[in-house]
Design a protein around this nucleic acid. Structure first.
Lengths: 156, 156
DNA sequence: CTGCAACCTCAACTAAAGTTAAGGTCAATA
DNA sequence: TATTGACCTTAACTTTAGTTGAGGTTGCAG
């Protein structure tokens, strides 16, 4: 049915990329607005993508699974060489970045789990002093009372 | 300076809870609107909190670190006995719920990391067939071409 | 040549998790 | 008593990551 025509030298259509990458067309428009991907245009003003775009999108989705916000993904993708098509090793370098973030994320959650186990054991009835209530003393160690528990507030 | 007066039988003020739990006052108002915490009112219409509220908030923050959305946190908190103050074992039960989610979350990220390692090794140049591009065949196994990679789209 | 699916733009909407502002009250203190 | 600082409410705004809809082309099939 939707056989992709091999003669289509102009590149992949938005629909094709969407189908193959699993993201919605609207998301691709959005990624483009955000500068995460780019496209050429056909004579009729339709988007045409290089095959490489599939990989870009895959990387974006992976980063999102890790929990990396798009703005940061964008920065990372911007380190890819412009002009020349990224090589295997370009992608590998990028991967290492994600990997590090991923490792860190896992580390943090494992830490949380360990603290949590302790607290489940203790019933967590002594909240101040509890590792979870006051996790690794982000601002503690300055021996004041229980202040600023649970890390910096999100959305500063 | 801000010694908490022991004679304050009426409960903790919003400011006190905010300071001790590390969340902003505005966030507490918000949590209250969302039904995550409750308060009595002083004669002058100010919020007064039971000490237990500190633990509730701690649990909320932990759940958030795990990545659980507030709506779900709310459901879980709603399983706490109303009327009677939650006991140690009530909290423990709740903790086990979070723990399970946390374990699952870690498991998922570790899976991702493993797949990722493979892909860094392979340079990920064979994207379709790649474990990351098509992670654990959420919709695959029905032997069609490469469709719906990378899991269900977020924000359905 | 007509019809329909796929494409285009632009603007507005959604959801989560809060924050910020405006305008007003309460309470401890100088 | 007057003045702060902490509190109150309501409403609007913020960010992230998109989706939805309206109104208008394009391009392939019959």
């Amino acid at each position: 049915m939707t056989e992709i025509p091999r003669w289509n030298q102009a590149g992949l259509t938005v629909g094709e990329v969407a189908a193959r990458s699993g993201v919605a067309v609207s998301a691709m428009h959005f990624y483009e607005r955000q500068g995460l991907i780019t496209s050429r245009r056909s004579p009729g003003n339709q988007r045409r993508y290089r095959r490489e775009t599939l990989r870009r999108i895959a990387m974006i989705r992976i980063a999102q699974r890790v929990g990396i916000p798009l703005a940061q993904v964008r920065q990372a993708l911007d380190t890819l060489p412009q002009g020349r098509t990224p090589t295997r090793s370009d992608w590998q370098q990028l991967s290492e970045t994600w990997r590090a973030e991923l490792d860190e994320r896992i580390r943090a959650l494992e830490q949380l789990r360990d603290d949590f186990s302790d607290c489940i054991g203790c019933g967590c009835l002594s909240l101040n002093r509890c590792a979870l209530a006051n996790p690794h003393d982000i601002e503690g160690t300055r021996g004041r009372g229980p202040v600023r528990l649970l890390g910096p507030k999100p959305h500063s």
